[in-house]
């Protein structure tokens, strides 16, 4: 579905070049919820923006490819790339739940992407908007309503209907629940899951909240300082975690109802303007060895596609490193 190969993305800033993402290799399969976990500075939003072709002006792809159904969207002509993205990928971004235009009726908001892409006339666009709203569980009485007349849950469904109107096969949800209350967040997660099953789409779910991603995702990639730490299935990440950072994330969850005391990951997220040499997690890692300073991120592959990017695992019997 989406094959990302050796992707490196750079921002030019006054202080010099920032390597926001480095050598990312990952395949995202059809009909899965693929979770990306990372703190600020991990490159998770940069990855979403690169796939969507929405990098800020000072950002560029230095190397690598992003193949969507076999076509490298980084190599296509801009118009072609835009078309592929418009048809195949939609974005539900941070704060999208508050992004409905208060002056537009729900059906008009949902129809808007169709009219922007000029793929159809207004009547047809409205027809499809209503179809999509119905699919999202919003029946005819909501179609002509304005956002303030709807409940929060209905608005969430409307926002997702807007993302679904182009019939994408992939939805990228970048921190969709940040700034939402926990109950609203849980309701939104249920809507997304329902949608994924019903419409058989791929969801790339991006968040800093590890437990939240673990509830959603079939497979998980953990990013740290622009580099991968661990990639694997939900079960592999949760029960067979190898990377000290992954373990740290698991242990730092304040568990409710079990009085096992969570343990904080020491230190601050890496400053990507000035990352440490070798493994970027080294300064915060309890297990760090001197040799971690020269780690080259060659992964250890365990059991299928479970990959760990850690010096401790390097050179093991399954490792493909030197």
């Amino acid at each position: 579905m989406i094959e990302i190969e050796d992707l490196t993305v750079i921002y030019r800033t006054r202080e010099g070049k920032i390597r926001a993402l480095e050598n990312i290799n990952v395949d995202i399969k059809s009909n899965e919820i693929f979770g990306i976990v990372g703190e600020s500075g991990s490159g998770k939003t940069t990855l979403a923006m690169t796939i969507m072709g929405l990098l800020p002006r000072n950002g560029y792809v230095e190397s690598g490819s992003i193949k969507v159904d076999g076509d490298d969207i980084l190599k296509l002509k801009p118009e072609m790339a835009r078309m592929v993205r418009g048809k195949v990928i939609s974005l539900v971004f941070q704060g999208a739940m508050n992004s409905l235009n208060p002056l537009l009726k729900i059906e008009d908001q949902v129809a808007e992407p169709l009219l922007i892409h000029r793929s159809t006339n207004r009547g047809e666009a409205l027809r499809r908007a209503r179809e999509t709203l119905e699919l999202m569980g919003l029946d005819s009485f909501t179609w002509k309503k304005y956002p303030h007349e709807l409940s929060g849950g209905m608005k969430q469904r409307a926002v997702i209907a807007t993302a679904m109107i182009m019939k994408p096969s992939i939805i990228i949800a970048d921190e969709p629940s940040t700034a939402l209350d926990v109950i609203t967040q849980a309701q939104l997660m249920n809507i997304l899951k329902e949608l994924q099953k019903m419409a058989r789409i791929t969801i790339i779910f991006i968040s800093h909240d590890f437990p939240l991603v673990s509830e959603m995702a079939d497979r998980i990639m953990i990013l740290y300082g622009g580099k991968p730490s661990e990639i694997g299935s939900n079960r592999q990440i949760l029960s067979e975690a190898g990377h000290p950072y992954t373990k740290g994330l698991i242990n730092s969850v304040p568990m409710i109802s079990a009085r096992s005391k969570p343990e904080a990951i020491p230190g601050e997220p890496v400053n990507i303007k000035n990352p440490p040499a070798g493994c970027r997690f080294k300064p915060r890692c309890k297990m760090a060895l001197d040799s971690c300073g020269s780690y080259d991120y060659s992964p250890k592959i365990i059991e299928g596609d479970h990959m760990i990017f850690c010096k401790m695992f390097e050179g093991g019997k399954d490792g493909r490193s030197t």
Partner: peptide, 24 residues
Amino acid sequence: LIQSVPKLGKIEKKSVDIKGNIMT
């Protein structure tokens, strides 16, 4: 409120026994 807190581990559907939101 307690049900809504994200916990570790994949779930099919979160049961949140509440309707609407605070604006309701």
